[in-house]
Write a protein that binds this DNA or RNA. Structure first.
Lengths: 341, 341
DNA sequence: CTTGACATCCGAAAGGTTTCGGGTTATGCT
DNA sequence: AGCATAACCCGAAACCTTTCGGATGTCAAG
């Protein structure tokens, strides 16, 4: 197994160079020679060794993404859909996608050093930004092509190529929607502090309240870890300690699904007693009952755009729009309940 | 950018060999030398070039999967979940996953030749078997490690490593369930003829009817292409041309979701007028309304098992259970309606 | 007959790593 | 002093490809 140029060279009597150039379609090889060589190559089932080619060309035609991976994160649709979008756009450019899944125990930075530093891929997609993200710092330091889904925290400049949604505006819309529906006591479940977009979502919450002249009460705010369980816990504590709350803004859908459980657990009705809103618009949001009001972000499209931006950078195209902020959209569903009169 | 062994060798005054062996942890290197070399390597931010290593070792520590990819297949949860399972198990063995998405226009075999023949991966996972699957034939012919999700069609021996569910039994269970609920006119929506498991699902349907002594009526059978739309069309034609039908068995959930639309379109009530059952138990099945009765197959676990089996083959472990058939499970949900009296 | 152009071909290097087989030096022993 | 051994080190080859810079031979024009 493993027919090489050398094998074809020996069989055909020509040199490796000529075989390579014949198969490569160069015009400094006799037409008869080419025919003979291609025929032999086909007979022997020659396939160029891509690894050798990659080494030689310093091009892998592959983009990489490193994803956290635990059994319970299996239903994290965000990454799922993002990866689909990436793969879809990549396939149009005949690029492959290398996924390196990291167990929770593993040091994430190691994976970046290995994959990016080790020249495994032409470019890399960084998926959920942290404050002062060490991955971004590293990739910049070694000058490796990369793009970012998300951006730096609000106080920091995002001096790297990224695509993000305007999640501050998104959360603000959601808050205003609830205020419009007559709610005055609105809880908030935030992502962890170290996630970069947490600041934006908090700002959106504050902005929404401020516009309506409602004072922000820190005891209405909880933090989760983006996973379902933490949404359950946060909502539980929020409702137990602040019985006056009638609406909860949750910063991602997965936690919102958890919060649904907590609301039921407290014998309250979602929508009617407690209005609930999420963020992301994962498929499940539409299908839960009651369906979940949420802020839609075009995850699949973000994946596609990230890929196209990355490929431009790889091709040294010096793209114009180095940072793109997409709008998001309020999806009003049953968990909003109805307007209080 | 790109610090190599050579750079470290020059800076440290030792040879490339010694640098390699020092960093590799061999014991024929003086302890002081090793310290010096590791220090320099760290200072310079050395990362071994994985491509070069792969070329030399003929090992990529990567497994590959080639997936069909179109924008509308974006919601094909089966592949999504399978890939998650694969990635999860792979990460435990420090293997990466190479995904090559193929546009519908592309020749699938080309991708296999490129990736497997081109030594891009140590092993490959073949995901949805066809009758006389050319991909399997090819991989066998070049003796490239692979495992298969699914198996050969009923009439053929599956002389390759595979993991599959007993879908004949699954469909049979579903048919018996409907018969038990009092249905006598049961439609069937099959996958395309060229898919290997179509035969098993057909057999399950026949077996279920036979056991109950109900004659099989060919006009109750339609074929779709596994996608949502085709389920819609098939159900539509089935109900229009055979108004006596009261239950439909659909061979995958995605088509079943489409069939739901068709039933509604015909002003019939899912469950009450027309009982509906799917296959796969994708997440959406639980969340639609009404929720979808379906045959559960453990897709995530299949992905994990496939990976473990493949890695054993790669390690030349000559695994025992070269073909595994897992049981599947009937999930009775609202689309079953109630037992007719 | 010489020169130049053209068609066709090829050797060798480069890309970065690992490893085989051997080489050098110092140490310990008789 | 002589020799075996251990400790440490290194050159070169191999993995397979592409490409640079020629090399060779033929033929037509001068």
């Amino acid at each position: 197994m493993g027919v090489t140029l050398k094998d074809i060279a020996e069989k055909s009597g020509f040199s490796i160079t000529t075989v390579s150039r014949a198969l490569g379609g160069f015009d400094d090889v006799n037409e008869d020679t080419r025919k003979l060589i291609t025929q032999i190559a086909n007979e022997m089932g020659y396939q160029p060794n891509l690894i050798a080619r990659q080494l030689r060309d310093k091009r892998t035609h592959t983009i990489g993404i490193i994803t956290p991976m635990s059994a319970e994160s299996a239903d994290d649709d965000f990454f799922n859909i993002l990866i689909k979008g990436i793969a879809h756009a990549a396939s149009e450019y005949h690029y492959d996608l290398l996924i390196s899944a990291q167990l929770p125990s593993a040091d994430e930075m190691d994976a970046y050093r290995r994959i990016a530093g080790g020249n495994r891929v032409d470019g890399i997609i960084v998926a959920r930004t942290y404050r002062d993200d060490p991955r971004i710092q590293y990739l910049k330091s070694i000058d490796h092509p990369f793009v970012v889904s998300g951006r730096a925290e609000p106080e920091q400049a995002s001096d790297f190529p990224y695509i993000d949604v305007d999640s501050q505006a998104g959360i603000c819309m959601l808050v205003e929607h609830f205020i419009d529906y007559g709610h005055r006591h609105i809880g908030l479940i935030l992502p962890p502090e170290h996630i970069a977009f947490t600041g934006f979502r908090y700002n959106g919450y504050r902005e929404g309240l401020e516009t309506a002249g409602i004072p922000l009460r820190p005891e209405y705010i909880r933090q989760g870890d983006l996973r379902r369980d933490s949404g359950y816990n946060a909502a539980n504590s929020l409702l137990t300690e602040n019985p006056e709350i009638t609406a909860i803004v949750v910063c991602n859908d997965l936690m919102a699904l958890g919060a649904m459980g907590a609301i039921r657990q407290q014998n309250k009705r979602i929508g009617l007693d407690i209005a609930l809103g999420g963020f992301d618009d994962i498929p499940a949001a539409r299908h839960t009952s009651p369906s979940l009001t949420t802020i839609h972000q075009p995850i699949f499209e973000i994946g596609e755009r990230l890929t196209r931006l990355l490929l431009k950078i790889i091709m040294q195209d010096n793209p114009q729009n180095i940072g793109q902020i997409l709008p998001c959209k309020l999806m009003i569903r049953d968990s909003s309940g109805t307007r209080k009169t």
